[in-house]
Amino acid sequence: MATKKKAEKEAEKAIAAARTAVEEAQRLVKKLDKKARKEADELAAALAQAEKDAKKVLRRTEKTQRHAAQAARERAAAAATPSSTGIPTFRDLRDRAKARGIQGYSRMNKAQLLHALGEG
């Protein structure tokens, strides 16, 4: 019987040690869960910042494209206007003659248009 009691005591000690080990493991898992949650929160914050930065870059790119398009339109408009010498272009003279209702403007050359408009 003594050996049976001794075996029971050793079994109880082993069970107690196993319970302690399980409790320690559970505590460590909770700790890991907290650490994992903290890391997940940090990653979520980093992702939100990256998304914010990407939107900012997109807005800047769109703004740059709008400015480039506006500059291209301004260059095209500058090319279509009379030269800086003050002499109007043939197309400009035809448009002005048409607006004034001058007959035969479509068959006139630049000199004739200038004369008809009273500028030559």
Rank of each mutant, 00 (worst) to 15 (best):
residue 37 R to L: 07
residue 75 R to Y: 02
residue 31 K to F: 07
residue 55 K to T: 13
residue 83 S to M: 15
residue 97 A to M: 00
residue 97 A to Y: 00
residue 35 K to P: 02
residue 108 M to E: 02
residue 69 A to K: 12
residue 100 R to Y: 02
residue 85 T to Y: 04
residue 69 A to Q: 09
residue 83 S to R: 08
residue 73 R to K: 15
residue 78 A to C: 02
residue 105 Y to C: 00
residue 33 D to Q: 11
residue 36 A to Y: 06
residue 65 Q to M: 15
residue 65 Q to K: 14
residue 93 L to T: 00
residue 46 A to D: 14
residue 30 K to P: 01
residue 47 L to Q: 13
residue 35 K to N: 15
residue 77 A to Q: 13
residue 45 A to L: 15
residue 100 R to N: 05
residue 44 A to D: 15
residue 83 S to F: 10
residue 91 R to Y: 07
residue 107 R to F: 07
residue 75 R to P: 00
residue 31 K to L: 06
residue 63 K to E: 06
residue 91 R to A: 08
residue 41 D to Y: 02
residue 38 K to N: 05
residue 32 L to T: 12
residue 54 A to V: 08
residue 63 K to M: 07
residue 101 G to V: 01
residue 90 F to N: 14
residue 52 K to I: 08
residue 88 P to H: 01
residue 88 P to W: 00
residue 97 A to S: 01
residue 100 R to A: 04
residue 29 V to I: 10
residue 61 T to D: 12
residue 92 D to Q: 14
residue 64 T to I: 05
residue 78 A to F: 01
residue 87 I to P: 01
residue 42 E to K: 05
residue 47 L to Y: 11
residue 73 R to G: 03
residue 106 S to K: 02
residue 78 A to W: 01
residue 104 G to H: 05
residue 44 A to I: 04
residue 27 R to G: 04
residue 65 Q to T: 12
residue 92 D to M: 05
